[in-house]
Amino acid sequence: MSATATPLIAMAPARRASAGLWSNALYRLRRDRLTLAAATTLTVLVVLSILAPLLAEHVFDRSFEQQDLLKTYHPPTLDPPAYLLGGDELGRSQVVRLLYGGQVSLFVGFVAAFMNLTIGIGLGLISGYFRGPVDDVITWFITTLNSIPIIFLLIIITTLFAPGALTLTIIIGLLFWTGITNFVRGQTFALREREFILAARTIGAASWRIMFRHVLPNILPLIFVLLAIDIGTIILAESALSYLGLGIVPPTPSWGNMLSNASTYFSRAWWLVVSPGATIFLTVLCLYLIGDGLRDALDPRLKGAS
């Protein structure tokens, strides 16, 4: 078809071709050094945790439960490498325990947060978009869940199921999503009144399409930040839960129980507190930075690409 009106803007050569939000985000992420550094650090932590059995056997020559009562509270040293981060109250290698602890903590953190996110986003979108009776039921459920003392609920669950990392993950995953739902619901409330949502309805878009193509992309950047906070909270919550005898049972280490355990010996062996503390700090910091970087990368209004 021939042009009806002469283009107002002289034909400019097309800029860097892109398929949309995600490819643009990827392009921007590749130039964001801080986020890349955080992602690299987190990847290293994850890989080291996965390789924990190999490293324990070949590098440190210690299993995580191997005790050496002559080396209790051994200060950090390079020789032997097993005491790189010192020895704990039973003379176990802190570094090996930290690696194994990573397996548990990162698994619980990521998997439970992912479950929280799935339930939270799904229910939040449905509740905020459809409102009315659907919203009433979901809100009622959340209020009820939140009003039950969580400790009480956990004690009941502990008696019903065998404690362990997997049980802990599922319990956290199924119980801690209410905050995300409330957040997503609130954002959806605000967004659904925007004119571009009305425009989407005018062109005949179905509800699922409006929820996932119009509402979700507009709250996704905030969800990434929320996810980073959630994983951090879960890693810390795990230690509290383990203390109750729910979840990680000693001698299996997790960052959380190592930290709470070491607090008793702080005056004798400060390094026992510092190493899990610093690791948790580093992990959460990396997650925040990644969440922040993703938020910026997904915002088309911020310049920097193309």
């Binding site: 892109s18 571009f196 425009a199 062109i203």
Partner: peptide
């Protein structure tokens, strides 16, 4: 399906376009 036959042009061109879509 009927919406194919009837459309709308909105008042505010800033609010009626999804900021995250090309």
């Amino acid at each position: 399906k009927m919406r194919r036959k009837m459309q709308m042009i909105f008042q505010d061109p800033y609010a009626s376009l999804n900021p995250r879509m090309t």
